[in-house]
Design a protein around this nucleic acid. Structure first.
Lengths: 106, 106
DNA sequence: TACATTACTGTACGTCATACACTATACGAT
DNA sequence: ATCGTATAGTGTATGACGTACAGTAATGTA
C-alpha cells in the first residue's frame, strides 16, 4: 500500500515542483541554496531531483543561468527569464484554478 | 509556448485527476455520468482519459465495479473500495499539505 | 587524515495523462 | 427508414518528468 501511496504522491509532485522552483527564482539562486530554501518551505527535494529539473527548465528557456567563480566554490546561479515570468504567471493561475476545483470537491 | 504551457498543465493534472475521481466515487457512478459530474465541477476530462484511469484505479484495488444490465444500455458502476477509502484519505491529506506549501510560496 | 558538506553533471526507468483507434447501440431529427 | 449525435465502453502507444543511481570535485570540520 505504501508503494502505491508513494507513487500517487510522486504524481502529485509533478507540476507542483516546477511551480515551487519557479516561484523561488524571481531572484538569483544557486542550486544548493535553492534546495535549502525549498526545504525551509517544507518542500523536500533531493539534489538528484533538483539539478535535472533546473537543467530542464533552462533548456525550456524558463530560466537563465550564469556561473559565479569568484568565491571559493564555483556556483551556478539561476534566474527566471522574461519568458519564464510569463509562463510562471500562467502556471500560477492554473494552479489556482486546479486548487479551487479540487478543494470544492474534497 | 502554448505547447510548453499545455505540457506543464498536464503535469499538474497528474495526481489531481486521481483525487478528483476518487472524491466522486463515495457513491456508485458509471463512467459516462462520472465524466459529466466532473465537468460540472469544472474538471474537464475526455472519455479517452477517464476510462483508462478508472480501469487503472480498479486494477490498483482502489475501486470496485459491477455491471448494471437492467437498463437499455449496460453500464459499469464504480465505487470506492475500503482500501480506496484509506488511500483517498491519505491523498487528501497529501493534497492539503502540498496546497499549503505551494500557496505559501506563490 | 577522514568524513561530511557543499555543489554539480549525466543517464535510465517507471508511471500516467493523453491521443488514437475501435465497438456498439439508443435516441432524436428529418 | 435513415442519419448523425449522444451515450457507453475497450484497448494500446507515446511523451514527459520525478526519481534513483552513478559519478566528479573540492572545501570545511573534527
Amino acid at each position: 500500500m505504501s508503494e502505491l501511496i508513494f507513487s500517487l504522491k510522486t504524481e502529485l509532485r509533478r507540476g507542483t515542483l516546477t511551480l515551487a522552483v519557479l516561484s523561488q527564482l524571481q531572484t538569483p539562486q544557486y542550486g544548493y541554496s535553492l534546495a535549502q530554501r525549498l526545504e525551509e518551505n517544507n518542500v523536500s527535494i533531493d539534489q538528484s531531483t533538483l539539478y535535472p529539473l533546473l537543467r530542464r527548465l533552462e533548456k525550456q528557456e524558463l530560466l537563465t543561468s550564469e556561473w559565479d567563480t569568484t568565491e571559493n566554490r564555483p556556483r551556478k546561479y539561476y534566474l527566471l527569464s522574461e519568458f519564464g515570468q510569463e509562463v510562471f504567471k500562467q502556471l500560477k493561475e492554473e494552479w489556482h484554478n486546479t486548487s479551487m476545483q479540487l478543494n470544492s470537491m474534497l
